[in-house]
Nucleic acid binder design. Structure first.
Lengths: 377, 377
DNA sequence: CGTCGTGTTGAATCTTTAG
DNA sequence: TCTAAAGATTCAACACGAC
């Protein structure tokens, strides 16, 4: 845990393990990075402040308050200030990165465009942007925007012409039902037993990342024995996953509270054996097809009339993806319930198209769309 | 199709349709934008050059050549040159945008970070970043990166404090099986019969966007009759979808070949009828009905007791249109908040009448009054 | 031991109108 | 251009107690 190590330009294939390996360095990330040897790190994962720029409090519809990220470390005076901060830590990271090393940075639309531009300006070479799709994101409570259901990660090499960075293409493909791993990943946010909580039962860190996300990142872009650096260590997810996967880690963190929690967490991790390190991960099911998908894919057209199985009721499809009957518009479920006088209805089985083959439930069309999607992917 | 129209600052509610509506303007996009009146456009969709920075030709494993986007319009000498270009057209767009207008920009990791930063620097306010997940993306042939399976769109308002931009939240939600629309969208890329092809059988435009994508964008963020501008019109997907959905369009394009293809394509589009285009709206769009109107119309009488849904609280209606509980009188909202100990409350859904049918929210009475008003008018 | 109902929560740039 | 008031708004998990 001593940040003061002798500077050396050896590409870190030294025999004796460095003293800063598998430790958490307390302090400012730029200063700590500058005390590390150059070209000593294989992969960097960085989860910097997002610069959320929140206004006042936000209330849920039930009048409970949303626990906002309003910590002091997320406050920046301007885009210029945030850019200066971003450039500083990205430059310091680039110095400690091996020539064939890569960096991952995660962010939201508040900051990721600043980060991406800075990466390019500094000389990093973008390899991919990866979308983390959340299975269970927070809703948009006011109904004035789309639900913010993803975050973006940028994967970049140190230089445009960097050769030989690690990318375990074959392993990823094998783990992904023998098709290459895409740039959109589906994971739940970190909740339940994985989420670190203090004695008061409250979450230790406001933005703890799920281990599954880090596991895929490290399995994809590093090898056992590699050195993984996280300049915004927080609750230590990067360290915990690195240790479990047989990688070395270096964390940098300013807050003692986070350091203590991270160290205890990492100490409790049982590293996997060599055999188990081969491969993991897999595809998550995602069969949901909403009614608008049927329209957008051309299987149902605006103006078409839908019937129930006995032709007692009918409804007209509109371009916005709602259907119209009895003077009211709404979802296939709502209108299905309305015309029957019920509280609820499964519109997929209730409503039918009436074409040359006769009445067919619209659920049949959904099956076709699902088959198309499966064949295409 | 005359780019030279007289400059006017009228907010475009002029009686006679402007001559540039539903036309394709030939020329440089910044010059053409500067010839349009200020504050005249509701929604902009822009698909700018991606600045792809491709090195040499890309070969598939079978040594066939990938038909990369290497047109001259996609060549920029440096990030600085691309940024200057980006700022210029984004500034010109901002001038023609109505105060409550919004802009969509689509891009890939090559350019979207430059675009997003420029949007923020210029003063646009980011509303969402939307991920277009492709069901059938091009594979990564080299196996050195993740399959690039998505593109990113940024949705932004003209200013941070812009009020009243169009977002058809309720319709999107209804079409999405009654859950709010997320920021990750799944669509196939444009292929098959939809893809414009020349006499030689080759695709007319290298990056033709699918109509389904534009349809969701326009259904989400515009109304029938709105003006939709596309400064990089290309093969005219924006115009074709706008026409079909009953919106006006303005396209700007430099290449005569694209203009010809787009015009023929748009001319063949059959606009949908008014009924199919009606968008489902929620309570926000309903005329305001104050509580005292319920009393004046006899739907609620002074002295009646209101309850919350679980009969935990009650209040008495007074002749002046206030209600009384816990020793205080005030609006249905204020007293609803008071009895619950909250800062705010929607009294329309909180308070219920208790008559022969049991508890019913007073919002139901408001619906009846609205229906009466509609019938009378 | 389940099931059901209730309550809590997560990186959030989250309203509109009248006066 | 202010402020105050009206009024609109949530999805997937998890935890916990009751039964």
């Amino acid at each position: 845990m001593s940040p003061r190590v002798s500077l050396c330009d050896v590409p870190s294939v030294s025999a004796a393990p460095a003293s800063w390996l598998d430790t958490i360095i307390k302090g400012d990330c730029v200063a700590a990075l500058e005390a590390l040897p150059a070209h000593s790190v294989d992969v960097i994962f960085a989860d910097p402040p997002y610069n959320l720029q929140l206004g006042g409090d936000l209330m849920r519809p039930d009048q409970s308050m949303v626990n906002a990220v309003d910590d002091h470390w997320d406050q920046f005076a301007s885009f210029e200030a945030y850019d200066a901060f971003t450039r500083a830590w990205l430059l310091a990271c680039r110095r400690v990165l091996k020539p064939n090393g890569t960096i991952w940075v995660i962010g939201s639309y508040h900051n990721i465009f600043r980060v991406g531009s800075s990466l390019q300006d500094i000389g990093y070479w973008l390899l991919n942007d990866i979308v983390w799709r959340k299975t269970n994101p927070m809703p948009n409570f006011r109904g004035r925007r789309f639900q913010n259901a993803h975050e973006t990660m940028i994967w970049a090499s140190r230089d445009q012409n960097a050769k030989g960075y690690t990318f375990n293409y074959e392993a990823l493909k094998a783990a992904n039902d023998d098709v290459q791993m895409r740039s959109d990943w589906l994971f739940p946010i970190c909740t339940g037993g994985e989420r670190l909580k203090g004695d008061d039962g409250k979450k230790v860190h406001p933005t703890q990342k799920p281990e599954a996300l880090l596991a895929r990142i490290l399995m994809a872009s590093s090898k056992p024995g590699d050195v993984i650096l996280d300049p915004f260590f927080g609750s230590g997810t990067t360290g915990a996953v690195a240790r479990r996967l047989g990688r070395h880690f270096v964390g940098i963190e300013r807050e003692q509270e986070y350091i203590d929690a991270a160290r205890a967490r990492i100490d409790a991790v049982e590293p996997l054996g060599k055999a188990e390190l081969t491969v993991m991960t897999g595809k998550r099911a995602e069969p949901r097809v909403a009614f608008n998908v049927l329209m957008e894919s051309g299987h149902i057209k605006p103006g078409e009339v839908l019937h129930d199985a006995r032709r007692r009721h009918k409804a007209i499809v509109r371009a916005d993806g709602t259907i119209f009957a009895n003077g009211q518009a709404g979802s296939i479920h709502k209108i299905g319930a309305l015309v029957q006088g019920f509280d609820a209805c499964n519109g997929w089985t209730f409503w039918h198209t009436d074409r040359s083959e006769g009445l067919k439930p619209i659920d049949d069309l959904r099956s076709i769309v699902r088959a198309d999607m499966a064949r295409a992917s």
